[in-house]
Computed example of a mutant assay.
Amino acid sequence: MTTYAPLQNDTFLRACMRQATAYTPLWLMRQAGRYLPEYCATRARAGSFMGLATNTDYATEVTLQPLERYPLDAAILFSDILTVPDAMGLGLSFAQGEGPRFATAVRDEAAVAKLEVPDMEKLRYVFDAVTSIRKALNGRVPLIGFSGSPWTLACYMVEGKGSDDYRLVKTMLYSRPDLMHRMLAVNADAVAAYLNAQIDAGAQAVMIFDSWGGVLADGAFQSFSLEYTRRVLAKLKRTGVDGQIVPRLVFTKGGGLWLKEMAPLDCEVLGLDWTVNLGTARALVGGAENGPGKALQGNIDPNVLFAPPAQIATEVARVLDSFGTPFQGSGTGPTHIFNLGHGISQYTPPENVAALVEAVHSHSKAQRS
Rank of each mutant, 00 (worst) to 15 (best):
L153R: 09
F209T: 02
Q328S: 15
V276W: 07
L173D: 02
Y347F: 14
V246R: 04
G219Y: 12
G213C: 12
G298H: 07
T325P: 07
T239C: 03
T83K: 00
C267G: 06
T239Y: 03
E351L: 10
A192E: 01
V269W: 07
A295R: 04
A310Q: 12
S149E: 01
R134K: 15
A103E: 14
Y156K: 11
T63P: 09
V316P: 11
T335H: 03
D218S: 12
A22L: 12
P309V: 01
P264T: 12
M157T: 06
L123K: 00
K237V: 00
D301E: 14
K170Q: 11
G254N: 05
A22Y: 05
A95D: 15
E98Y: 09
Q96C: 02
C16H: 02
H336A: 14
A129N: 02
P142F: 12
T171N: 13
K260S: 15
T275A: 06
Q297P: 00
R231L: 14
D266M: 10
W274S: 00
A220Y: 12
G287F: 07
R124N: 08
A59G: 03
H361I: 08
L36A: 08
S345H: 15
S48R: 01
A366H: 15
G343W: 00
A307C: 10
H181W: 12
F327Q: 02
G341H: 08
Y4H: 13
G291R: 04
T332M: 06
L216C: 10
R34Q: 04
K170Y: 04
A154V: 14
A74L: 13
A366K: 15
L259Q: 04
V141T: 10
P6M: 08
F94Y: 06
V191T: 12
E227N: 13
S322I: 07
Y39R: 07
P66C: 06
M262E: 13
Y125I: 04
G293T: 10
F209S: 01
E121D: 15
L64Y: 00
N339E: 06
D200Y: 03
P309S: 11
L272H: 09
Q19E: 15
I133D: 06
I344G: 03
F127T: 10
A75S: 07
I81G: 01
T152C: 06
T42F: 04
D301V: 05
